[in-house]
Write a protein that binds this DNA or RNA. Sequence first.
DNA 1: GCCGTCACG
DNA 2: ACGTACGTGACGGCA
Length: 604
Amino acid sequence: MKQFSLFKNNEGTEVEQTESETPSIPHITHSTLPIIELSFDIEATGKNPLSDSVVGIALCKEKGKAYYVPIRHVHNTNIPDALNILKGVLEDESISKIGHNLKYDILILRQEGIHVKGRLYDTMLASYLLNPNKPDHSLEDTALQYLFHKKKSFTEILGKRHSFSEVPVDEATQYAAEDAELAMELKDILFEKLKAEGLEDLYFDMEMPLIYVLTDMEEIGVKINKERLEELSKELDSYLGMIESRIYNIAGESFNINSPQQLQKILFEKLALKPLKKTKTGYSTGIDVLEELSKIHELPAEILNYRTLYKLKTTYVDALPKLIDKKTGRIHTSFNQTVTATGRLSSSEPNLQNIPIRGEWGTKIREVFIAEKENILISADYSQIELRILAHISGDEGLVDAFNRDIDIHTTTAAELFNTPKESVTEEMRRIAKTVNFGVVYGISPFGLSESLNITPKEAAIYIEQYFKKHEGVKNYMDSAIKMAREKGYVKTLMGRKRPIPEINSHNANIRQQAERFAINTPIQGTAADLIKIAMINIWKKLKGKNLKTRMILQIHDELLFEVPETEIETAKKLIRYEMENALSLSVPLKVDISWGKNWAEAH
DNA sequence: GCCGTCACG
DNA sequence: ACGTACGTGACGGCA
């Protein structure tokens, strides 16, 4: 009986078959052979780690020797006890695990009752930390870049088959064992580079422990009121129908409102409205243009209204129910740890970091995110985190002082911008100041500020000049960030996360200025990302250590959402606030706002 | 597969 | 004269 195959990759693709009488896997049994590092790669039926099952596992403990253990191949011999035998090894805390995108493998194994433990060497994360600008950190691309190895892609090996379980074991062995071995080889190279780049601590103290945190969050998921979503869908349908007929009436004909092309014809040809902005492909029908045009015609406002409701319906109300997991009855997002250039997480399938919050419909949609029976949701969000971080890293006296005295920062800025006492700051002045403060974090420019304030670039330039007059520290920070990018070719966050900025010396002024804004913004946004990651790890450890049933379920950049048993509310609030406010010690205090309720609308 | 648009921080 | 705020992901239309 074929038990497993030994795959040799060093000289071509020679494959050795090993045969034995009884199903056992002597080579990777911990008791017979001490292992300190093990590279592994799971093959599964599909790509959803929560609902698919394991087809096979590839293992590699040293270069040139990789094994494939078939578990659930159709029309082939499998090793039914393999998972149980491997459990001991995978759960052994003293054995380091090497892999590419370990969160995926850990999640799949959990569905099989295996709880991977120990130090994790994730080569995908290593690749990300070495260059977060890189759009593709797949094993395929990483092996090509660092090992000059052209690997077969998963789609290639799958061919016309529906699932990896239909791939014959021989072929699967070639493919999977190669993956495990590549990860093993990449580990040495990438982790050596991490060390050389000073990124080792960031990896082992932050990104590696975060794998376990995110795995838990994804597995737990969030509960959704499906019935309510179905009601909302019907409600939106009838609204959309009404708006649609009004639009056709005004336009004098029916057309596809969702087609920017057809809409342009109606607006700018038939109705002869002024096109205010161009896109690469034609005249813009974006929100800014339509808002402006709605002053002189009734159609643009209707279009905007239609677009808003259509967006909410298709992207949230109709999409979310389809993603409810059959097994858990909940929605499980993926938190992507290797996507953003700044160190933030991203969320996909579904994206739970962009759930509507504004307006009447924002509330209605957040109300469908609910807590389990006898639980509540707690939301904890950092107050003005990016401005506080700017205060810290720039050391700007005015900013540091304002936060230390717990003064309303936008009002303070308004008083400075308009040279007036705080008491006489109007709402309008505060609104402008708020926009300026946002702009500062983005790497402010007169044009950008003018666009979002609907003023001229000249007027915007005056605000900017006035701001820098009062905040020399901020100005100095910006200059030094740009200088750093020019001299080193990268910028860094407080925790040492790096982002290369190769465009900083571009001869194209637009590209160069954009690079300068990256240099200004990345240390701020990236440090905020570092900060909340530290808080998440510390909260997760404390919750575990105290055996609490409170669960962290979502991260939305500066906010954490928890599902909390009613009996733990006070304990959880205290713990969460403490860990978030003390994740880092800065020259300004960190402030966290906490609220709670039966659903996400109430908890915000 | 790209573009425009728009939801969020 | 040009085109510009920072970071994402998902949708429908269209080639």
